[in-house]
């Protein structure tokens, strides 16, 4: 126990590697390790260069918000405190597919590479379409300004509409 206490006494400030988290848009543990091994630090996103994003929520409402390049659509939902039920349950760690979003054809083509791991999780998404992606894997860039992302209906919605 003495050991633990001793460690606790030492303030965080004496540790050299805290800075990367503040710097990167989506800080990750991987970046921390690579950062300390290769001494590279993520670059500060330019806050002025905002990208406009329109979400169409399940009820058909359009919500327009702004995000920074480099941020994922899940980051935007969290930062803007958007109330989309059950969205992003695994916090962007590719375990849930609740961040499923549907895009227009032309936007979909501009969204960047899709990894195998994302495809696997996407296969498990409810209401999958040909232009579906996982919101936590789609990162904003200036060229995506004005994109529209539709939140698919949830399992619960489907059941309700079947019933009534």
């Amino acid at each position: 126990m003495a050991l633990v206490a001793a460690l606790r006494r030492l303030s965080h400030a004496s540790l050299g590697f805290y800075s990367w988290r503040a710097a990167a848009a989506t800080p990750t543990f991987g970046a921390w390790i690579t950062g300390q091994r290769s001494f590279t630090v993520g670059s500060q996103p330019l806050r002025s260069d905002k990208v406009t994003v329109h979400f169409i929520n399940r009820d058909g409402d359009k919500i327009t918000v702004k995000g920074s390049p480099g941020e994922s659509l899940l980051d935007v939902v969290i930062n803007e405190d958007l109330d989309i039920d059950g969205f992003g349950a695994c916090e962007g760690t590719l375990a849930c597919s609740t961040c499923h979003l549907i895009f227009e054809d032309d936007v979909f083509k501009k969204l960047g590479r899709i990894t195998d791991e994302e495809m696997d999780m996407l296969d498990l998404a409810y209401g999958l379409t040909d232009t579906s992606r996982l919101g936590c894997q789609v990162c904003l860039s200036k060229s995506l300004d004005g994109l529209v992302a539709k939140v698919p209906e949830s399992v619960a919605d489907a059941r309700q509409s079947q019933d009534g």
């Binding site: 990750t28 543990f29 991987g30 390790i33 690579t34 695994c90 916090e91 962007g92 760690t93 590719l94 375990a95 990894t115 791991e117």
Partner: peptide, 16 residues
């Protein structure tokens, strides 16, 4: 879970 998934669940974190 919230702590650990930020460390070992993302493929790019585990790639290190």
């Amino acid at each position: 879970r919230s702590v650990l998934r930020q460390l070992i669940m993302r493929p790019r974190d585990v790639a290190v």
